[in-house]
Nucleic acid binder design. Structure first.
Length: 431
RNA sequence: GUGGGUAUAGCUCAAGGGCAGAGCCUCCGGUCGUGACCCGGGAGAUGCCGGUUCGACUCCGGCUGCUCACCCCA
């Protein structure tokens, strides 16, 4: 086995900000995915799988031209025919595009979800990567606050099923478009009359995205921000009513929340209710899950005027929480490890293992029939975390039996028993 | 895009302007009631380029990577 790379050979490494998920970590991902699938199924949501690449135009129209995502974070390129394409930076736009394109909205609304990779060209740091994964849940075609509550309850149930703790829910309402426009002007006037206090970033945003000034962390601006008008105090009547209904629904369902008047979101399409689940255990990137209502988006990308709401959950961040909180993933190890030593045993090991797998579906059996010393193979068997080592020399091979050693036994001198293989599994492993 | 930290073996860490060490891992052998434990042995490293110097892994500069923070968001 070669230990070092060829001296002249440059090793090829993964792209910056794009990570391999190792076998050691994958059990966390599977735990999350299995749980999400099961919870979403319980609410009648159906999986869909849009492509990873879309026309650049889709994101410009949905996420918003003035947002950081569109302005400087997209992986955009021309294909060979000169069309501008983009690796999706989020997938609400794709879900909505698909629903419009295929007429899914004609039945009175759809509940859909998707898990997959998203791409943003950002400087990587803890909880922020250039390829990252989201669970996206969207309810298209439902107007009331009940559906917003449903989405929050889905996420709350996810935390519960995963046994995650210390995730706080923050909610806010941004109001419908007309109210947003009026409020935005109010805000521009307010900050405009205090230009001397604003920092460089905020001055820039005053023209482009004044809402974002509200969640600036600059200590010099905190007093100014605290006194600034908040969107939730300037809602249209319908949004205000819906927000109250949402709060009641959460209270009635026993979900704790806090109203964060300064919670705004970085995508332009949100209207009305927005929410975020945050954790203190993730460093600077503390939002695990965020979403809200986007009643204008479907129309804005060319579909029928349709209310909609949804959320996205960052899987890397969630997996980080699972690790920090030491959640047991029930990671699987092999049931048995078949050690074959000798020419005849080596020949018969694979067919024998096949026979056993035929008889015992669900069995995990690793076969070690290649070259190598008996000692090395037994050592590997031990390291594999298998419960049993099945030991087969030429004599056993001929007889169709194996020696069996209980590797997890505390007694180092566990008796080596002879056993017929299939019968052994039926008796010890699978009942 | 901006700033801080950092870069020694597969991993975790030492050392230090003059032969780069250890533990884990790994490989071979011994012990042995076939693993582990224990004993003996082997393999394996200073990110890249330049400067200072008799001499640089060490000091200096640049680059690159990683990392954290700003920013942004999941």
């Amino acid at each position: 086995m070669r230990r070092s790379p060829h001296p002249d050979m440059k090793t090829i490494k993964a792209i910056r900000g794009m990570n391999d998920i190792s076998p050691a970590d994958v059990s966390y991902w599977q735990l999350f995915e299995d749980t999400a699938r099961s919870v979403l199924d319980a609410y009648g949501y159906q999986e869909m799988r849009p492509p990873v690449v879309e026309r650049t135009e889709l994101f410009k129209r949905s996420v918003g031209e003035g947002t950081d995502i569109v302005e400087k974070e997209m992986y955009t390129f021309e294909d060979r025919s000169g069309d501008s394409l983009t690796l999706r930076p989020e997938c609400t736009a794709s879900c909505v595009r698909a629903a419009v394109e295929h007429g899914w909205l004609r039945g009175g609304g759809v509940r859909i979800w998707h898990i997959g990779p998203m791409f943003r060209y950002e400087r990587p740091q803890k909880g922020r990567y250039r390829q990252f994964h989201q669970l996206d849940v969207e309810a298209l075609g439902f107007p009331g606050p009940e559906v917003d509550a449903e989405l929050i309850l889905i996420s709350a149930r996810l935390w519960k099923r995963l046994a995650l703790k210390n995730i706080r829910l923050q909610i806010n309402s941004l109001g419908a478009r007309e109210a947003q426009v009026a409020y935005r002007q109010l805000l521009v006037d307010y900050f405009g009359s205090h230009r001397d206090v604003l920092d460089e970033d905020s001055l820039r945003r005053l023209g482009s995205n004044p809402l974002r000034i509200l969640d600036s962390k600059n200590p010099n601006m905190q007093a100014l921000i605290a006194d600034a008008p908040a969107p939730v105090d300037h809602l249209d009547a319908q949004s205000a009513e819906d927000f109250e209904a949402l709060k009641s629904a959460l209270n009635d369902s026993g979900v704790d929340f806090e109203v964060n008047k300064r919670l705004v979101r970085g995508l332009d399409y949100y209207t009305g209710t927005v929410f975020e689940w945050v954790s203190d255990e993730l460093g600077a990137q503390n939002a695990v899950c965020g979403g809200g209502r986007y009643d204008n988006l479907i129309e804005e990308i060319g579909g029928p005027s349709t209310p909609a709401t949804g959320f996205a959950l960052g899987i890397e961040r969630l997996v980080e929480l699972l690790k920090v909180q030491q959640i047991d993933t029930g990671a699987t190890s092999p049931h048995a490890y078949l050690v074959a030593v000798g020419d005849r045993a080596g020949q018969l090991a694979l067919p024998l293992a096949e026979r056993v797998r035929d008889e015992s579906p669900g069995l995990r059996l690793i076969v070690d029939a290649g070259e190598g010393s008996f000692k090395a193979k037994l050592k590997r068997a031990d390291r594999s975390n298998a419960r049993f080592a099945l030991i087969m020399g030429d004599a056993e091979a001929e007889a169709g039996t194996v020696g069996v050693k209980d590797l997890r036994s505390s007694d180092p001198q566990t008796t080596v028993a002879q056993a017929e293989v299939g019968g052994f599994f039926k008796k010890h492993v699978l009942n």
